[in-house]
Amino acid sequence: MKPFPRILAAADQRRLTAHLQRNGLVAYPTESCYGLGCLPTAVRAVKQLIRLKKRPQHKGMIVIGADFSQLQPLLRPSEKNAALLQQPQTLPTTFLLPASRKITPTLRGSRRNKLAVRIPAHAGAKRLCRMLQTPLVSTSCNQAGKKPCRSEREVRRLFGRRVWVVGGLVGRYKQPSRIIDGETGKRLR
């Protein structure tokens, strides 16, 4: 297996972009496992992802972006948001930040007004967002309560052709990203 970040050919980038715009799902390596994602603005795709994972619908999703500028439209304007997301982290860190009013409960979670966002520490996941010029939903690639996929082979065995798989190696972390409430500083995971 080639190490990630594998460079997608221009034609593959266009096909993957079109796939995502048609409410498609994508699996890709992250810091600790394969992530399963879609466009955060594609409500049908987010619902499809929830069904595929057999995930409780009240839980929110994490959204990753290559940099703060990709995540900014999903959040309420705040200098604190920018500062939190742009400061270097020693561990993969997801922040719960006030969501833009445009963000649906399907993405942020029912009865929640914050969105979980992260600039990934995994070079491949960050590069994928940069290549596609969009943030991506990023939840562990598994079915609820099961062990997350750590290889392209595991993803294909579990989900077959239902997701577009971007191959590569997952990072060295054994645990998912920590989650910090950006307003209170409290660690939630």
Results as ranks from 00 to 15, higher is better:
Arg6Pro: 00
Pro105Gly: 07
Cys38Thr: 14
Lys102Gly: 02
Gln48His: 10
Lys114Asn: 04
Pro92Arg: 05
Val43Pro: 00
Met61Pro: 00
Thr41Phe: 03
Leu115Thr: 09
Asp67Met: 00
Gly167Ile: 00
Leu84Thr: 07
Leu188Val: 15
Val163Ile: 13
Pro105Lys: 03
Arg112His: 13
Leu75Ala: 06
Ala42Gly: 02
Tyr34Leu: 14
Leu16Gln: 11
Gln70Val: 01
Pro40Val: 07
Pro3Thr: 08
Gly168Ser: 10
Leu52Ser: 04
Gly65Asn: 04
Pro40Ser: 07
Ala27Leu: 07
Pro135Asp: 12
Gly65Pro: 03
Cys141Arg: 09
Thr139Val: 07
Tyr28Cys: 09
Phe4Gly: 07
Asn142Leu: 02
Leu188Ala: 06
Lys174Arg: 15
Val163Met: 11
Gly167Met: 01
Gly65Asp: 04
Pro40Met: 12
Pro29Gln: 09
Asp181Glu: 09
Ser69Val: 05
Leu20Gly: 07
Ala82Gln: 15
Leu85Gln: 01
Thr30Asp: 06
Gln89Lys: 15
Arg156Ser: 09
Leu128Arg: 12
Leu91Glu: 15
Ser110Tyr: 12
Leu75Tyr: 04
Ala144Met: 03
Lys126Thr: 14
Ser32Pro: 00
Ala125His: 13
Arg15Cys: 11
Gln87Tyr: 01
Pro92Val: 05
Gln175Trp: 03
Lys146Met: 11
Val165Gln: 02
Leu52Val: 06
Lys59Asp: 08
Asp181His: 11
Lys147Ile: 11
Met61Val: 09
Leu115Asp: 05
Leu49Ala: 02
Ala66Phe: 11
Arg189Tyr: 11
Gly37Ala: 14
Gln57Gly: 01
Gly167Asn: 03
His58Phe: 15
Glu154Asn: 03
Gln48Lys: 15
Gln143Leu: 12
Arg101Glu: 10
Leu128Trp: 14
Leu71Tyr: 02
Ala123Met: 07
Pro29Thr: 06
Ser151Val: 06
Arg162Phe: 00
Pro5Leu: 14
Asn142Trp: 02
Cys129Pro: 14
Ser140Asn: 13
Lys59Pro: 04
Pro98Cys: 03
Gly185Ser: 05
Ser110Val: 09
Thr184His: 07
Phe68Lys: 06
Ser100Cys: 10
Pro148Val: 04
Arg101Thr: 06
Arg111Gly: 00
Gln13Asp: 00
Lys114His: 11
Arg55Gly: 12
Pro40Leu: 10
Gly160Leu: 00
Pro148Ala: 08
Gln13Trp: 00
Ala144Leu: 07
Leu74Asn: 08
Arg172Trp: 01
Arg150Tyr: 03
His122Trp: 12
Arg51Glu: 10
Gly171Val: 12
Val46Ser: 05
Lys47Ala: 07
Phe68Glu: 06
Phe95Gly: 02
Gln143Trp: 05
Val117Arg: 10
Ala9Val: 05
Tyr173Phe: 15
Ala82Tyr: 10
Lys47Gly: 01
Leu136Phe: 13
Gln57Arg: 08
Ile179Tyr: 12
Leu132Ala: 14
Val170Lys: 10
Arg162Trp: 00
Arg101Leu: 05
Arg15Lys: 15
Gln133Phe: 02
Leu158Val: 12
Leu115Tyr: 03
Ile50Lys: 08
Met131Pro: 00
Thr90Lys: 11
Pro77Phe: 04
Val155Gln: 05
Glu79Thr: 14
Leu36Ser: 09
Met1Phe: 13
Ala125Val: 14
